[in-house]
Design a protein around this nucleic acid. Structure first.
Lengths: 232, 232
DNA sequence: CCGGCAGCTTGCGCTAAAGCAAAGTCCACC
DNA sequence: GGTGGACTTTGCTTTAGCGCAAGCTGCCGG
């Protein structure tokens, strides 16, 4: 059991530089938790009691405005560190994390973070890198929202999803978890209706293949063209 | 000279927890550089040779798409850490930093970062916090771009600018550096024309007072109302 | 096996804001 | 003190994509 944990955790970039002994020491303080599909791992605004590494499954991280508008911040896949609010000096989680399929995560009490980085300075560097790459992602998204048309943004979003959680299937690459038109809309700053229209049009052209909470990319290369603006 | 530096650097959150001796040690490796108005501190895509703390002045950080579209990522004010690409494991600066007024910064060679955080673990924690708060900002901006109308976004942008770099003047709060309509457009994902129209309308109602590269907020409270959507 | 509902599609009209075009206006520099 | 260019304003036209509305479909639970 413990060795299973160690082997999967070894692939987490933030833990990669640690020795097996160090890994075991860190894993001693973790507990493994199971989240059923549609279960919340944590809720926006609640106290940031833990930080996590996802062992298995997929999470949707979403954020709601005071006015009730909702956006999808990102999806978390196995091996990723998440819920590190405390490390950024936040008392409360700034977003909600929901399991989109049955999932399993390792959880550490947030209070342990300071000792852990004191004992393993590489952890701090790793966390900085994790947060840094998320910052990059966010800024790329701001650029997209500022300068691209909806069609390009949807293409970009699908390509990113395929890269992060794509599974090769017979006719292309399928997003490896249930995702609705509404979810895509909340990732791209548009509406359910517009996403549906775009996907329908693409399906006509054989670029994608759809279904209820299912998206398969049949021609990623052409989609990439659309994302880059050569589509129109 | 050194003591002047130490006193201003003591206000930088990331250095706040260090003792005077430690501060002096860190400052020994820094050089102070002057950037004239409109001068570049670093350029997007170039090697990330240094990281910086701004001592005096204001910088505009901007990012350009492959297609040539440009956005303003943020403004940097005195006391802020910036250019920490290397800490996030980036080889190249992901954006360009331009002095919008004559400015002075402390610069350290990026290569020093690993030793510095090894010697002063608080630095890593501080950097994590800095990057974390930028991530928060970025995500707030994504939310705005996804869910708000242009008018609300412009109101939010002005309020943020006023908070960060506002100077009390007779009739309100003035943004303390030259900023064009174009700049505001690039902060809010809209066009020069739309910003100009909005500001003109607000000027009519006495909410703001304009001018060439000059913006004064005369009624921040009402602007806040617009930002929250109670405007219309 | 069937009913109902969550998720999806599609048509239509509307509007916010972009694009285009043409004048101001102010400042800096000669 | 004048002149050119950068910055701004403003009118008009166009359009992407939103909001509303109605109907469809496939899945899950009974």
């Amino acid at each position: 059991m413990a060795s299973l944990d160690r082997s999967i955790v070894a692939n987490v970039p933030i833990f990669a530089s640690l020795s097996p002994d160090e890994l075991d020491a860190i894993l001693r303080d973790a507990r493994s938790v199971r989240y059923p599909k549609d279960g919340a791992v944590f809720d926006q605004g609640t106290e940031a009691h833990s930080f996590f590494v996802l062992l298995h499954g997929h999470l949707r991280v979403e954020k709601t405005t005071p006015q009730g508008q909702q956006i999808v911040v990102r999806y978390v896949s196995a091996g990723e560190l998440f819920g590190v609010a405390q490390a950024m000096a936040l008392k409360h989680y700034p977003a909600t994390a929901i399991a989109v399929v049955d999932s399993v995560a390792l959880a550490w009490p947030s209070t342990l973070w300071p000792e852990l980085i004191a004992k393993f300075p590489a952890l701090a560097a790793g966390a900085l890198q994790t947060v840094g790459s998320r910052l990059q992602d966010s800024q790329a998204r701001i650029l997209e929202l500022s300068s691209e048309q909806v069609e390009q943004r949807v293409a970009h979003a699908l390509l990113r999803l395929a890269k992060q959680a794509g599974r090769k299937v017979e006719h292309g690459v399928e997003i490896d978890f249930p995702i609705s038109r509404q979810d895509v809309a909340e990732m791209t700053g548009t509406t359910l209706h517009t996403v549906s229209r775009i996907l329908s049009a693409w399906e006509q052209q054989g670029l994608v293949e759809g279904g209820r909470q299912r998206i398969v990319l049949r021609d990623p290369h052409k989609l990439f063209g659309i994302a880059e603006g050569h589509g129109k």
